[in-house]
Design a protein around this nucleic acid. Structure first.
Length: 254
DNA sequence: ATGGCCAATTTTATTGGA
């Protein structure tokens, strides 16, 4: 069983890339972020034709998350106390036992701006919600675009990015509050080397130059991690035509 | 050293992304 997470940067603009990728990879479960459309405008039909049940939590222009599942989709729940009402979190039970939380964290714009403090607060409220609703004695999987790097291994030029947005100490500490619920950065259970990235800037032709950041993550409870056999980034769609600026990340379970 | 692109809407500019 595999769960994929992918910030698609508009689901409607990305269907030409998303549909062939799903047909080829056939992940059982998919978490999408930045769908950027209201639920009524979500392109359900072509995804349902691939066998997916769908839960959406969208809004116009910005944000938006969706869960696709071919192995059952129950108890969908949107948002949490303190999230500011933005469409950035959708949870559900998939496969009858995995408590899945799909997240699109606030970007923050730049260290010190109002949105930066919104981001820190959002991550803090998320941690509180996870503590209240997702017992880590169960199989709990948080995934999505956290918009934070864990450490310098996740940054192509740590000196350039030192204390800048996505890499600052307060952001890493706020992400640490979520991890402290009893979760682990699953990719690092399997891979310790630097240079594994999930996002590359369009503006700097970052992908071509190998200049990326790892900001899309899987955080797992001990029972989920025990079943997990690997976490991989699929670079292929990032290098193809009409890419999102993020690559999909896939967690496999035995 | 700097800037570059992309998507949606407010659409031939602006905003936000990260």
């Amino acid at each position: 069983m595999r769960i994929a997470t992918w910030n698609v940067n508009s689901v409607r603009a990305r269907m030409g890339v998303l549909l062939p990728w799903l047909a080829e990879q056939r992940p059982e479960v998919v978490c999408l972020q930045e769908t950027k459309c209201e639920d009524e405008r979500f392109p359900r039909e072509p995804l349902e034709e691939l066998g997916y049940q769908i839960a959406t939590f969208g809004q116009r222009t910005y944000n938006g998350v969706a869960i696709l599942s071919r192995i059952g989709l129950e108890d969908a729940a949107r948002g949490f106390d303190g999230d500011g009402g933005e469409a950035r979190m959708l949870s559900a039970v998939v496969g009858g036992e995995v408590m899945l939380v799909n997240l699109y964290a606030i970007n923050g714009q730049a260290v010190g701006l109002p949105r930066f403090y919104d981001k820190l607060a959002w991550l803090g409220h998320l941690a509180q919600h996870v503590r209240e609703r997702f017992p880590v004695t169960e199989k709990v999987v948080l995934c999505g675009d956290f918009n934070v790097t864990f450490d310098d291994r996740d940054v192509y030029d740590p000196v350039l990015w030192r204390e800048r947005i996505l890499c600052s100490t307060p952001e890493r500490e706020a992400l640490g509050l979520v991890v402290a619920c009893g979760l682990k950065d699953a990719l690092r259970e399997f891979r310790s080397e630097p240079g594994i990235y999930t996002w590359w800037d369009f503006r700097t032709f970052g992908f071509r130059k190998g200049r990326g950041l790892r900001i899309d993550h899987f955080l797992m409870s001990p029972p989920a991690l025990s079943a997990c056999t690997g976490v991989e980034v699929d670079l292929a769609p990032r290098g193809g035509p009409k890419p999102s600026d993020h690559a999909p990340v896939i967690a496999s379970f035995g």
